[in-house]
Nucleic acid binder design. Structure first.
Lengths: 201, 201
DNA sequence: CTAAAACGTTAACAAAAGATAAGAAAAGAC
DNA sequence: GTCTTTTCTTATCTTTTGTTAACGTTTTAG
């Protein structure tokens, strides 16, 4: 995909948050970069400050942590979604999360420095504050749902809910990643799947 | 506590997000209300749109869900903290959460309508967008940590971490609320406490 | 194409958590 | 103060999950 097509897709996506006029868009795009991430390469790693946000044009990434030497996948992002180690990006402190490309991935990125410049630019400041607010609110709602699911649902219930809402994750992610995403081990998910199979047969 | 003292505390608290000048503060405060919530009364309930955000001047609240007829406490807010059913507030859709006063609680509140008016008021718009962004980002970071704790930590590890960081919750909340907050049953938390006792003795 | 790595299932066992009930202690209501 | 409710612990039993390992299959890398 060529850059201008990717930018148009990005612009269209952003309209769910803010709509830029032509003059604003020109300035905004001056702060954007294009980058590629080969499969298995890292968008960010623990100990590093994740100083950027990416928009995935093509590809997919997973977020994971290492716990006792083992790799725990916590989340995924796909085409037309943002990717970042948000807390690290927002606080400017080193993160604890690996973010890794699962396929060759093409991104549009802006750095925290870019965002700060736009927030300091009277032409864009208001719209960028609003943009930041709406994006943060969007993710806040996602996180609220997810925390509630850990509090009030069993792993089996979380899996059944994913079956009904998580088409893309189920189709594109190996099962052991999905297991950790649900907060359980791959072996346990395999058992849950058998239970669900049997009881619905 | 009298209203002006409460407002001063609120203003001081808000400075971690935005600083209002005198003219702005006057307009801002015109959108604030004072309210009281008797112990065990509800700030919001499932099925209702939570159309407001509160700032707790004195008192405390807990957030909970009913699952299979049982009461699952998910979170707490204390003095000098905001309280809302955030997703419901942000989306304008009915929520699923009870928010209940644990003690007689005094609040400063503003409604979504108030916020929308301020966001539409050129005098305040920019600062309120920024305020909303920074508050949402703050809670986003809290939620990120909490989700990661569910993915990478055992209940015992979550409890030990709470011991080292959650002074106020531990001091002020009964243990069965804390258990659900950690994602386990009260009986299980009691066992964990015994395990921890024994192994550290 | 071939070797190696990754993936999913199953089994066996251990550890932990859930459910239920009972009893003691503490807190709250009147 | 007394009575009631709430809270916490403990015990028993069941269910679920974790751990480890084995096995067959699929995918990937060179």
């Amino acid at each position: 995909m060529e850059a201008s097509a990717a930018l148009n897709i990005f612009r269209k996506y952003l309209e769910r948050f803010v709509v830029f006029n032509e003059a604003e868009w020109i300035v905004f795009t001056q702060h954007l970069s294009f980058s590629s991430l080969k499969k298995k390469h890292y968008f960010t790693e623990p100990g590093k400050v994740c100083d950027k946000v990416g928009f995935i044009v093509t590809g997919a990434v997973r977020y994971f942590h290492i716990k006792d030497g083992e790799d725990i996948t916590g989340y995924f992002s796909f085409e037309n979604e943002f990717v970042s180690s948000y807390k690290s990006y927002l606080t400017g402190l080193p993160g604890y999360t690996y973010v890794q490309a699962l396929e060759d991935t093409k991104l549009i990125t802006f750095t925290r420095r870019d965002m700060e410049q736009m927030l300091a630019n009277p032409m864009l400041a208001y719209k960028m504050e609003r943009f930041g607010r709406l994006v943060a609110e969007h993710y806040l709602c996602c996180y609220e749902d997810r925390v509630i699911s850990f509090l009030t649902q069993t792993p089996e219930e979380r899996y059944l809910q994913l079956l009904s809402t998580g088409k893309e994750i189920l189709q594109r992610m190996p099962q052991h990643y999905i297991a950790h995403f649900l907060g359980i081990t791959p072996v346990s998910l395999s058992r849950i799947r058998r239970r669900v199979m049997v009881s619905s047969a």
